[in-house]
Design a protein around this nucleic acid. Sequence first.
DNA 1: CTTAGGG
DNA 2: CCCTAAG
Length: 562
Amino acid sequence: MSLISPVFPRLLVPPGKVLSSKNDGVVDDIRTTAIDLLASLAGKLLEESESSSTSSTNAFVEGKGNIIKQEDVEDDDVKPCESELASKSPPSDITSETPLEQTRVSDCERGLGLKPCYKKEDCDDITEETGVDIEKREVKTPPGTDGVLNQSKLVCRDDDENYCKYNRFSDRCRRFNRPLTRVGHRRMMTKYGRAVPRDTRTGYYHVLFDASFVASALFLNSTCGYMCLDGCLLYRKRKLCNGYNPWKHETVQRKRRLSDGGLSSESVTNSPQKGESVKLSIKSFRIPELFIEVPDTATVGSLKRTVMEAVAALLGDGIRIGVLVQGKKIRDDSNTLSQTGLSCRENLSNLGFTLEPGHVPLCSESHVISTPTDSTNLSERSLDSRIPFHLQDADHVISSENCVENNQELVPYQSDISADEPSSDSRALVLVSALEPEALAIVPLNEKSKRTELSQRRTRRPFSVTEVEALVAAVEELGTGRWRDVKLRSFDDASHRTYVDLKDKWKTLVHTASISPQQRRGEPVPQELLDRVLAAHRCWSQHQLKQNGKLQAAATMVGSSM
DNA sequence: CTTAGGG
DNA sequence: CCCTAAG
């Protein structure tokens, strides 16, 4: 048995010793063996990285201080209803156009059946808005989903590439500085906008840590289980807890995806005892992604250390092995394999394994991960880390890939896992259903990550119904020309949705709503929503016309009077 | 940086 | 989603 990875030293264990083939001992053996190896590895890594892992500064704290200091009053987003409150010290930048705004608001909101709100809410803790809120349309979260809609704000902890660069920051600030208003937040964004680009393609050193740990290769049957563990979460949470300072490294420049290295395996034949021996091979462990931040001035050596720390943090928290049969997790360790239905080849093809966080990070910070999902999307489940227990279920499932024929080399799946389809997007703590074997089928060898070289196009992420709902609600209120505001209002926490994305989505929504249902593709959007889309679209475009007309009229007036 | 619009 | 022009 060997452990090989591009990053880690090769660990070899005499094949004969590794696993006994007692039916009821196989799983345990796999577990202990793997864990032992990984544990020793972790120990080594921790040891090696000890000296370099304590260098975090408190720049983050400093950053926070700045933010607080700068939290002076700043007029911010002007919402329709706000302009209706002209008497109440209207935001400066809207003052001059208040009449227009009023008209616009009234028209459109009437058209949309939205009532302006005249009362000032105590928004201290409820919303980070500017304190005046129009009555918000209740946004319902589909039953059974974990999508969180906070007011009309979509709280999206959907893990994504931006999480580390943006959400983490805002998370902390928000949690610890509750009173921070959106103003402060905006400041933060502004302040750090450059240092921490929101665009996924230019943000962080994004190390796709495809280190393929070849954990073991046993038995003849060649049933391959891919083990995936979300290292990212552990890493992040840990760092968060430890006061890791993401802002220490400010000049993050480029995202790098390091693809996995080699992969190999060795076969081990076991002497059967009574019953039939179970033979399977676990091809690799995969850590989907680790997010790492380093300044572009960092040395290669420090990059290495950073990666090391990340891995150490990941492994240092301990790992457990889960066993899946036909996609269902087998929790009862006492049953024999045959009792579990694993005795013949066919059965084994249904076997899979998972790497799971060994223990829950101490960090109690809530909602590090909560993914708004649609109830129909089985491939995603959100987890509420407030209930740490859930972490155990947050394992990355892997597919029980059946490499059917003996020791056949793993099929290089179109495994650009992070490539195109959402189902193949390996995200932190997003559980990929084992029913979708190819979902996380990892790429062994040859499959050089295409994305490494080709364009770094972002992975496609279809909007969920929940998101569409939030978008529609926001546009109803804000109109179709204020995407930045829409973003801030309803997708502030969904860092992977840029305002351009929202604008584009709206564009397609309008189109979708305009075509016949038969021509629509993808996850169906409730007709009710599409109706609202059209209504809002009409309303706001009409308003735009009016406004233009008025402006023109005003312009001619001015012109003629001169 | 934001918007708007074509690709 | 991407890219770009324009403000």
